[in-house]
Simulated scan of single mutants.
Amino acid sequence: MSKQHRGVARVAFLARQEEIRRLFDAGHTLAAIYDAHSDVLNVMSYSQFTRYVARYVRGQENRLQGSEGHLKALVRPSSSSPTSRSNEKSVAPVLAHRPNKIRDDLI
């Protein structure tokens, strides 16, 4: 097996992007599209194919990967200015344990 150069899979995908977009818009599944073009798309894995569809066909931006993406998803944008936040005290949430909960509270 010969060595593949970087970007070969992207070139193969982009060469068929319009046909893939047409099939996707017509309602074909990604697996069916990948299998139908397996003769030329065999230079990439199915997971890479789905990432290219998300980026080039659906128009989704790159998602952050790993823990950085999870951390940024948890951060809420602040509506207050940094100077007004410096005067506030940071208070940790308090969790209360109630061993005798009423059943209606659980439903």
Rank of each mutant, 00 (worst) to 15 (best):
M1F: 10
M1Y: 06
S2A: 10
S2G: 04
Q4E: 10
H5I: 08
H5V: 10
H5G: 12
G7P: 12
V8F: 02
A9N: 07
A9S: 15
R10Q: 05
R10W: 11
R10P: 04
V11F: 11
V11W: 05
F13D: 06
L14S: 00
L14C: 05
A15P: 08
A15F: 10
E18K: 01
E18G: 11
I20R: 02
R21I: 11
R21G: 11
R21E: 10
R22D: 00
R22Q: 07
L23D: 00
L23R: 13
L23A: 09
F24Y: 14
F24A: 00
A26E: 09
A26D: 13
A26K: 11
T29K: 12
L30C: 10
A31S: 09
A32G: 13
A32H: 03
I33Y: 03
A36Y: 05
A36H: 06
H37V: 09
H37L: 15
H37K: 12
S38N: 06
D39F: 00
V40S: 08
V40H: 04
V40D: 13
L41P: 03
L41S: 05
M44R: 01
Y46Q: 07
Y46P: 11
S47W: 03
Q48W: 03
F49M: 08
F49W: 10
T50H: 09
R51G: 09
R51W: 01
R51Q: 06
R55H: 07
R55Q: 01
R55S: 05
V57Y: 06
V57L: 07
R58Y: 01
R58N: 12
N62P: 05
R63H: 05
R63T: 05
L64I: 04
G66K: 01
G66E: 04
S67V: 13
E68D: 11
L71Q: 00
K72I: 10
K72Q: 09
L74Q: 07
L74I: 01
V75I: 13
V75N: 00
V75L: 00
R76H: 04
S78T: 06
S79I: 09
S80L: 15
P82N: 02
P82W: 03
S84P: 11
S84R: 12
S84F: 09
R85I: 13
S86F: 10
N87R: 15
N87T: 12
N87L: 15
E88K: 15
K89P: 14
K89H: 08
V91G: 00
V91I: 13
A92I: 14
P93Q: 01
P93N: 00
L95P: 04
A96W: 01
A96K: 02
A96F: 01
H97P: 02
H97L: 15
H97M: 10
R98L: 15
R98Q: 13
R98T: 06
P99N: 08
P99A: 14
K101Y: 05
K101P: 13
K101E: 02
I102H: 14
I102W: 10
I102M: 08
I102L: 15
I102T: 14
R103V: 15
R103T: 06
D105N: 01
D105Y: 03
L106I: 14
I107K: 02
